[in-house]
Design a binder for these strands. Structure first.
Length: 377
RNA sequence: GGUGGGGUGACCGAGUGGCUAAUGGUAGCAGACUGUAAAUCUGCCGGGCUCUGCCCUACGUAGGUUCGAAUCCUACCCCCACCA
């Protein structure tokens, strides 16, 4: 279980297969985010039809509501949600970053003030792992300390060192819980270090030195730093990362970010932008993006994206989608979310196919050129 | 026919002498969102320009008072309510 095999490489880019308890994942792959044990607005059948192989859920949010005990009593995340394919739970480390102002960090862990009812909740590396064990996803993530992209060396070093110490505590607790059930869930470490090359290096080396990982994540990117900086960090990291396990770039990204990441050796991605932008009325297109509420679509009979094979594009006109947004009906939010998710998954599928047949570089360059042409980011 | 109330920008609706191109809201338009405190948030929204400012046109219509009027006066037009 948890084996990863690399089928082909194209430069740093890789096409591989990851075997997990609930099925295997062909990489590169995009993983839709389902924070509250639901990819916002979408039915599991709809998610399946986007081609998603694995989805996320969030430790912190599910701990608050409904509570991991409920999920466990309902048979774990897969039974609870009826999603029968692989899942990954994020540890709540990102909430350390995003809930700034509602939390205080100490070596022991993080005290959060619940944004739901104001109660104070403490998450420690140990409890993050316990919660994730109860949730029962295929992959659990270590509890880490994420700092903003502009973080100076000192703060980034603090977050990175702490993440390493927390990693050891996560691993110890996870080992205790797994016991004889090893093989039910794996735990992945997260590289931190902000935008600082030396810190990233130390983080990666520290993790690799500990050994025995079935995957490794790169965290703390796309949190305010410039895009070339993220690319540089990935390039500096690539040679340090083990070849034989998947690399997961957390929280990334937009379409172009996927190709840029894949070209730099990343295998897995997740991002809320597909669904959030979908709900907010921005749809991704090969040549950029489009505001679905835009007046230009008022009487446009064509599909959102003529090149797309998603349910939305195969079924509905731009004019109807625009109408749904203007009329504020929830169907519009769902339909554009479906398109955006499918868009990223299809992009990853195409990347994989081009890696396999040796045409990744040229295809990727051409795709990015076209995508950037109209100022897309 | 009489009495009373009212006519404000696409719509609703504040404002009752200068701080008013005119509060709010709606509609409209544009933008942002990257391990989800987000079906959210931000900006624009009379016209024009040589655009950190300037010039037109605007509060039913026409005239008047005043240094200055959406705000006061007069006449007229229209709408609503009640009474004949």
């Amino acid at each position: 279980m948890f084996e990863f095999s690399v089928e082909t490489t194209a430069g740093a880019a890789r096409a591989g297969t990851l075997r997990l308890p609930h099925g295997s994942v062909e990489t590169p792959a995009f993983m839709p985010v389902g924070t509250h044990a639901v990819v916002r607005g979408l039915h599991p059948a709809e998610i399946r039809r986007t081609g998603a192989q694995i989805i996320l859920a969030n430790t912190y949010h599910l701990h608050l509501r409904p509570g991991e005990a409920v999920v466990q009593a309902m048979g774990g995340l897969n039974r609870f949600t009826t999603w029968d394919r692989p899942m990954l739970t994020d540890s709540g480390g990102f909430q350390v970053f995003s809930l700034e102002g509602l939390r205080t960090i100490s070596e022991r862990g993080v005290e959060f003030q619940s944004h739901i009812d104001g109660t104070y909740r403490t998450v420690t590396p140990e409890s993050a792992v316990e919660i994730q064990w109860a949730l029962g996803a295929d992959i659990a993530m270590q509890f880490d300390h994420v700092v903003p992209g502009q973080a100076l060396h000192e703060l980034a070093a603090e977050g990175m060192e702490r993440s390493l110490r927390w990693l050891d505590r996560c691993r110890r607790r996870h080992g205790e819980l797994a016991g004889a059930m090893e093989g039910a869930q794996t735990l992945w470490p997260i590289i931190q270090g902000g935008t600082h090359a030396d810190l990233r290096q130390r983080s990666a080396e520290g993790i690799v030195a500990r050994g025995g990982w079935t995957g490794i994540a790169i965290g703390g990117l796309s949190v305010g730093e410039a895009k070339p900086v993220m690319h540089r960090v990935l390039e500096e990291l690539e040679p340090v990362l083990p070849r034989g396990i998947p690399r997961y770039l957390m929280g990334v990204g937009f379409p172009a970010d996927l190709l840029e990441g894949i070209a730099r050796g990343v295998d897995l991605f997740d991002c809320v932008a597909a669904t959030r932008n979908g709900r907010h009325g921005t749809a991704w297109l090969p040549d950029g993006r489009i505001n679905v509420r835009g007046a230009r679509l008022r009487s446009d009979p064509g599909p959102l994206d003529p090149e797309c094979d998603c349910e939305t594009c195969l079924t509905f006109s731009r004019a109807y989608l625009r109408h749904l947004f203007v009329a504020e009906d929830m169907l519009g939010l769902r339909l554009v979310s479906i398109h955006n998710v499918r868009f990223l998954i299809r992009l990853a599928e195409q990347a994989r196919a081009h890696i396999l047949d040796g045409t990744f570089d040229g295809w990727s360059r051409e795709w990015l050129g076209r995508h950037y042409a109209r100022g897309a980011t």
